[in-house]
Amino acid sequence: MSKRKPYIRKLETNWWLKTGFYTRYMLREGSCIFITLYSLILTWGIFNLSQGESSFNMWLDTLQNPFFIILHLIVLIFALYHSITWFALAPKAIALWVKGTRIEDSVIIATHYAAFAIVTVLCLLIITL
């Protein structure tokens, strides 16, 4: 008779707290909750825009509340974390071959950061000019 009795371990629900790598993954995935909040704040703004000038100004006033300032600061940190992780993983999803060699990961990442800087400066210029 076989004495085999394979022992099956279940992945615990808190598996993502056990290794730093997994925790960073969950933070990356968790950034989406804050970006969702931001999109909803903007949706609320568009709603106010459609309701007329006083409504829209009230929305802008509300955003001056310290609660919203702190919330936006947290959202910004998570959004930046999303950008950093997105750029870091980008080379894995892009395979560009030029003359028989694959373009270096660092080149792809640097290109992303350059584009990010350009977009950021451009947006700031558009809004202030």
């Binding site: 970006i35 931001y38 704040i41 903007l42 703004g45 955003l63 919203f68 300032i69 919330l71 936006h72 600061l73 959202v75 910004l76 959004a79 930046l80 999303h82 950008s83 997105w86 750029f87 992303h112 584009a115 990010f116 977009v119 950021t120 947006c123 700031l124 809004i127």
Partner: peptide, 13 residues
Amino acid sequence: CAFITPVMILITG
């Protein structure tokens, strides 16, 4: 999100 959301938050928020 990766390219433009941070600057949007910076401006509007």
